[in-house]
Design a binder for these strands. Sequence first.
DNA 1: TCCGGCTGGAAACGAGTGTTTAAAACATAA
DNA 2: TTATGTTTTAAACACTCGTTTCCAGCCGGA
Lengths: 221, 221
Amino acid sequence: MAQTDTVTRILDTAEVLFAERGFAETSLRTITSKARVNLAAVNYHFGSKKSLIQAVFARYLDPFTVRFHHALDELEAQHADGVIPLEVLLETMARTVLDVPAERHSLKVFMKLLGLAYSQAQGHLRRYIQDEYGSVFSRFTDLVRLATPDLPDSERFWRLHFVLGTVIFTLSGLDALRDIADKEYQEHVTVRDLIRRLRPVVVAAMNAPLPPPPMPKAEAS
Amino acid sequence: MAQTDTVTRILDTAEVLFAERGFAETSLRTITSKARVNLAAVNYHFGSKKSLIQAVFARYLDPFTVRFHHALDELEAQHADGVIPLEVLLETMARTVLDVPAERHSLKVFMKLLGLAYSQAQGHLRRYIQDEYGSVFSRFTDLVRLATPDLPDSERFWRLHFVLGTVIFTLSGLDALRDIADKEYQEHVTVRDLIRRLRPVVVAAMNAPLPPPPMPKAEAS
DNA sequence: TCCGGCTGGAAACGAGTGTTTAAAACATAA
DNA sequence: TTATGTTTTAAACACTCGTTTCCAGCCGGA
């Protein structure tokens, strides 16, 4: 117990600081001093700062993938025809995302980390996440294809990234937006609140009418 | 001409590097060596790295605000009742955003910078943009309020940022997504193409049904 | 000719970075 | 106990960072 105590304290401190300031802006000295462990402990237990960053993500994403696979298993069992309604798929994903940090303590940190994974230009992180957790995501998109048979493949591809952009952009810039919303509308917004607002918007976006076919040939640009 | 040449070369180089790697990850030495100017030139001409970052933004945002104000002036003149349809407002903003980098080099850079301004927001940048360009944005949101009288103020605020996230996320990550789409669906997508696909999605998102009222929460978060 | 004024350039400064080292402290098993 | 492997510690290493200094060059006006 005492041996893993240092590791846990480093991870707990690092994830908060990373979420607040980003990766490059958070030094190992800041982490270790705030966690009250020795500076060398990070390199001893994790090997490098990069590995620490990946470990922070793994602590959230590993339980997430397990839970999400289980949830999708149940859904597929319930829908013998293999077609799961889009709303159910989105709802399941949102619920799984919300459940994971429930056993840990901060949902906000998890959300900010997801945003950082895209916005911060850490090439190694994107590769790591893609390699380690890409399979869950493609299983999800396969189910979305079954749920939206009328959508051309390319249109569904783009719309999924549209809504992905909405979610990630909103959550990664959450603090800034929340500050404005707080003093502008006098209502403090939680992450759960945001997801409640996001759901109808996302569903409407996915079910939007198809765009008009591309103009045959206007002026070149 | 020779006197401003150094300044221009620094700005041209800095905006590309910032867009590619972010602010903290781009050192002044990388910028000055790639721009083939002396290291001290940045501090001589701009004062500090912070001021350089702000100057990079100003070079895009200054022309943008001028054009956008003019465009809104024309719209208000055309619609004497003061109510401009939502689609027209969105279309106008999109056209203005697309026009500005046309006279400069890169739409991609402009989009990535906008994304960075939110996600990687150093405090000083957010404050600078808010102070310097907040008035145009609030003029726009005022017009959107007139166009969507049924939407509660806070709901409209969040939905505007939802669609802002969609646009910025999609356009700033355009090349990566385009590469996937190209070889997955064998159709090369242009920016015009993307805007065509974005329009119905954005309109549907803004007009989505209202979310259910928040559940009274027993647990705090 | 000399002159202040800008601009350009090499070098250095001081602070901060991730990482490594080597010794000390600890725990556990023989 | 001694021996063994693991963990912690303080110190140093080898950078890179933004910024500053100081001096050489250039300029048009006296």
